[in-house]
Computed example of a mutant assay.
Amino acid sequence: MRLRFPRLRVIVLVAMVVAALAIVGWWAFGPSGVAVELTKRSWRMEIIVERLRSESGSDWCDELPEGAFDISRRTIADPTGKRAEPGEHCRYNVLAWRRSWIVKNEGGPGERPDWPRPPLRMAPPGQPGSERLSKREAYFEIELRDREDHAWVCRVDAERWQQLRVGMRFRIPVDRFGTANCPAMYPSNI
């Protein structure tokens, strides 16, 4: 005995199989990444400001850092056992540059990126309290959003940042944890 499917059931079944194969094919062979649009461009210029501070320390007197002052000495045995004989151990102060604060300027494409110019404290030479500019960092960032309003912020170099415009569309690989691979971003015609 032979089973016969009504013609409508066969058509529906074939349509479902074709749709499933199309979805799997698109997933496997379609364009990779998430379709996104550039929604914002911004820049930030940061400079670390260091302050000259007086710090205390202790060490063997024959291993003091350069510039040590207010030295007090005492003779002790080495607790680590590296020195066979008791030796002079010193407590001292030394001037050292330490990170104090960060100054920054930030803006968007309508403003020219510019380094901040903070007022710096000046103390007499050899005295704590003076400040100086240290490490500089420039950040050029773009914000990308997909159709579900998920957002990613990517850093790009200054030259690329100048070329990009709000409204441009891209595809960007996103891992299963939602982290975008910004360097792998490429233009899209979505």
Score class of each variant (00 low, 15 high):
F5K: 13
R171Y: 07
W115F: 03
L164D: 01
K104Y: 14
P116S: 01
P173M: 04
G25Q: 02
Y139N: 05
T179N: 14
V153D: 00
G33I: 02
L164Y: 10
C154W: 06
Y186N: 02
G107P: 04
G30A: 04
E46C: 02
A19Y: 06
C182F: 04
P187H: 10
Y186I: 00
V17E: 01
P31S: 11
T80M: 15
R169Q: 09
A84Q: 15
D78L: 09
A84I: 11
M16Y: 09
N189Y: 11
D62Q: 07
E88P: 03
E37I: 09
K135V: 10
E55P: 00
G110L: 08
A20H: 06
E46A: 12
I172V: 14
L52I: 04
L52F: 05
S54E: 15
D78A: 09
K40Y: 11
G25P: 01
E85N: 10
C154Y: 06
E88R: 08
P6Q: 12
D149H: 15
V36T: 10
Q127F: 14
T80K: 15
A180I: 06
C61H: 01
T75S: 07
A20G: 11
L38A: 04
S130C: 04
G178E: 01
P183F: 08
V17L: 14
R165T: 05
R155H: 12
R145H: 08
V18C: 08
T39Y: 12
N93T: 13
G126L: 06
L52P: 00
R121K: 15
H150D: 04
R117K: 15
F29C: 00
I47R: 12
D175W: 13
F29D: 00
V153C: 01
P79Y: 12
S56Q: 12
V36A: 11
M122T: 13
R44E: 12
G126D: 03
M168W: 11
R117G: 09
N93V: 08
S188T: 02
D70W: 07
G108I: 06
I23F: 11
P116L: 03
A180D: 02
E131S: 01
P124W: 12
C90I: 03
V34Q: 09
V18Q: 04
T179L: 15
E148L: 13
P31R: 14
R147E: 13
D146Q: 06
Q163R: 15
I48R: 12
V12C: 07
R74D: 00
R7S: 14
R73K: 12
P173V: 00
I23N: 08
N105E: 14
S32H: 05
A138T: 03
R117V: 10
R121G: 03
P116K: 05
I102Y: 10
C61Y: 02
P113N: 04
S134K: 10
P125T: 11
C154M: 05
V17R: 08
V94M: 06
A123Q: 07
L120K: 08
R41F: 05
A84G: 15
P118G: 04
C61V: 00
A35F: 13
W161N: 01
P116M: 02
C154T: 03
R117T: 13
R136A: 05
V94P: 02
L38V: 05
C182R: 04
V18F: 10
E46P: 00
P173L: 04
H89N: 05
M168Y: 11
